[in-house]
């Protein structure tokens, strides 16, 4: 006879399999392993960096020649002026921008997004090596490294925390709430009132947006970090909240119960969060994260936190997030309208 302890343990494991929680047990280690593998650069050739140079700037001829010759280490990309260079830096078209130093003659300022990023290290290391080869001993061509995302570690991490909050509400809170209403048939009862499917969806999205917005506002109040352009920043955050709440509602409607909604939520949560949070440390993750909607939220949030870009700079991101929100909302509407998977 099997002891009750073993019987119940087996029953609990069976429940974990049935409500798909076991997928998390397999998925999370597997996903973390892949992410860390992509972040870990040891034993790998350093990635090639792209450096922007302003056409009108008077760079040392030896430096430019050497940088052009070192084609395996870096590529030079001429830009019209500093503004264009900064825009390309934000768009990640270049990894660094060389500007003339106002303080030291024949020395340059390297502008990068993040000082700790792999590409920044590659540029500094490559230029230092080239300088050694061309000039031998002497003061470095780069007198200063300036980051566009500067403001202490707290402010630099803020976009990641914001993305985490938006994704938490979108992928964990919303699917579970929707699945609960589905499971208890409250959704069908609500649809027996004069309220329409669009109103139900609108109310759900609004509640999710409010939850995310309150969390982000609290985070800002506590950290005392303010974006450069508050209006644009708020609009972008709200658009991101709309996108991920709509996405989460759709996931919730696909699930039969709360347990499976939570599992599915986590399965979507981590792959949307980790690659974007670690993108600066791995070109591979950076390339992968461009396929995710979360990338189109975190990048403008970073830019708006540290610079004073106008909304017109973010038209592709705006369109992408809106499209994801509207498409998932349309799918949710169809599921409810056709009463698919509702009972």
């Amino acid at each position: 006879m099997m002891p009750p302890l073993i019987t119940l343990t087996l029953n609990d494991l069976a429940i974990a399999v049935k409500n798909k929680s076991v997928l998390l047990i397999i998925f999370i280690p597997f996903f973390v392993f892949i992410s860390l593998k992509l972040v870990d650069q040891s034993g790998r050739n350093l990635p090639k960096a792209t450096v922007g140079v302003v056409r009108s700037e008077a760079y040392a001829p030896g430096m430019i020649r050497a940088m052009k010759a070192a084609g395996t280490l870096m590529t030079l990309l001429p830009v019209t002026d500093e503004a264009e260079g900064m825009q390309r830096l934000r768009d990640k078209k270049i990894d660094g921008l060389l500007l003339h130093s106002a303080l030291t003659r024949d020395r340059f300022v390297l502008v990068v997004q993040k000082k700790e990023a792999v590409q920044t290290l590659v540029i500094i290391e490559s230029i230092a090596t080239l300088q050694q080869v061309v000039e031998g001993k002497g003061s470095s061509w780069i007198s200063e490294v300036r980051a566009t995302e500067d403001g202490g570690i707290g402010k630099q991490l803020l976009p990641t925390w914001i993305l985490m909050l938006v994704l938490l509400v979108g992928f964990i809170v919303m699917p579970a709430q929707v699945a609960e209403e589905k499971e208890k048939k409250v959704l069908l009862s609500l649809l027996q009132t004069p309220m329409g499917e669009i109103e139900w969806l609108g109310a759900k999205i609004a509640s999710g947006m409010i939850l995310s917005a309150v969390a982000i506002a609290t985070l800002h109040l506590l950290s005392q970090d303010k974006p450069e352009n508050i209006l644009n920043y708020v609009l972008f955050i709200l658009l991101g909240c709309f996108c991920f709440c709509s996405y989460g509602i759709f996931l919730g409607l696909l699930c039969q119960n709360q347990a499976s909604a939570r599992t599915l939520g986590v399965i979507f949560y981590l792959p949307h969060l980790l690659p974007c949070a670690l993108a600066d440390y791995s070109p591979q993750l950076s390339a992968y994260s461009r396929f995710l909607p979360s990338y189109y939220l975190i990048e403008p949030v970073k830019a708006l936190l540290f610079t004073n870009f106008s909304m017109s700079h973010f038209t592709p991101e705006l369109l992408y997030l809106s499209a994801v929100g509207v498409i998932t909302m349309t799918f949710s509407y169809l599921l409810i309208k056709k009463r698919w998977l509702l009972s």
Binding site: K184, K185, V186, L188, S189, Q192
Partner: peptide
Amino acid sequence: IGFVPELPSLF
């Protein structure tokens, strides 16, 4: 029409 399901669907 008012429908009362077998299991009460309430919050």
